[in-house]
């Protein structure tokens, strides 16, 4: 009896949590297709399929250069992600597999860099970018994101967990470090590289601080600031429009995320995140 009760309680908590976490998204998607704001503000929320419209999406692109924001965000996030994978995978390999002087100290510096987030160094970063004439360009958003102590740590943990045997075989065949890395290690590391990729992509896709500081030209803005701009106009405009803007920003990450989520679980499980 108490076992059944425990099971019921377990599922009740899980369902409630899932509902609390997904309901706001359902509400936004409904809002995006809703024809009138009055209906959106009606409580309890109602839903009738007759009142659906796609007009809100058109209004979003009329009010702000939404596709520019979108393209800018894609460029910034994918470039940082690609660059981070290169810097973190090579450094992670060195820390996991190579013997060299000062390794312990360098790795301590990598972990230490977690305590110097971009929020601390934003002022000099801004000054340097403006001296280089890079403010108001996407470079000012890309360059500061390329180094990631967390990414190096993540991939090192994963490389450490890989069995040595395959590398030994490659070495007997006369492969140097670079070939071992490219032909043996990387092909075995798809899931953890995908994990780093997703964590990195979503972080920079979502970042609000750097674009606020670096970019003043509306056409060069990224989505998070773009949404705030759209919402700023919303206060005099339509709730459906801002909901449509948010929905359009969510769908691409949702797709990528559903496609990759099993890799994330698998890779975090195999890397054993321990400090």
């Amino acid at each position: 009896m108490s076992r059944i009760l425990a099971r019921v309680a377990t599922f009740a908590i899980l369902v409630l949590a899932a509902l609390a976490i997904t309901a706001p998204f359902l509400w936004i998607f409904r809002g995006a297709f809703s024809a009138s704001d009055a209906e959106l503000y009606k409580l309890p929320p109602t839903f009738s399929p007759d009142n659906l419209t796609a007009a809100n999406f058109g209004k979003v692109t009329d009010q702000v250069p939404y596709f520019r924001f979108f393209v800018n965000s894609i460029i910034v996030s994918t470039t940082i992600t690609a660059a981070q994978i290169v810097t973190c995978a090579t450094a992670g390999y060195a820390f996991a597999r190579l013997r060299f002087r000062g390794k312990g100290m360098l790795f301590a510096i990598v972990i230490g860099s977690l305590m110097i987030p971009i929020q601390v160094t934003i002022v000099p970063l801004f000054l340097v970018m403006s001296k280089l004439g890079l403010t108001n360009t996407l470079w000012s958003l890309i360059l500061p994101g390329i180094f990631s102590g967390f990414g190096i740590f993540l991939l090192r943990q994963h490389f450490l967990a890989l069995p040595y045997e395959l590398e030994e075989a490659a070495k007997i065949d006369g492969a140097g470090h670079f070939r071992t890395f490219a032909r043996v290690i990387l092909p075995l590391s798809g899931p953890s590289i995908a994990t780093l990729g997703i964590l990195c992509f979503t972080y920079w896709w979502n970042d609000l601080l750097l674009p606020l500081v670096m970019i003043s030209d509306t056409d060069r803005q990224t989505l998070p600031v773009g949404l705030v701009l759209l919402a700023g106009r919303f206060s005099t405009g339509s709730l459906g429009t801002i909901a449509a803007g948010i929905a359009m920003a969510i769908v691409p990450v949702l797709v990528v995320f559903i496609a990759a989520q099993r890799y994330i679980v698998q890779s975090i499980a195999s890397s054993g995140l321990k400090l």
């Binding site: 899980l14 998204f25 979502n206 998070p224 969510i250 990450v253």
Partner: peptide, 20 residues
């Protein structure tokens, strides 16, 4: 399904989340 719904807000931009 549970995992997906729990993890989903993590990938959505904080400014979108805050606006919602």
């Amino acid at each position: 399904f549970f995992r997906l719904s729990f993890l989903f807000p993590f990938v959505v931009s904080a400014s979108a989340v805050a606006l919602i």
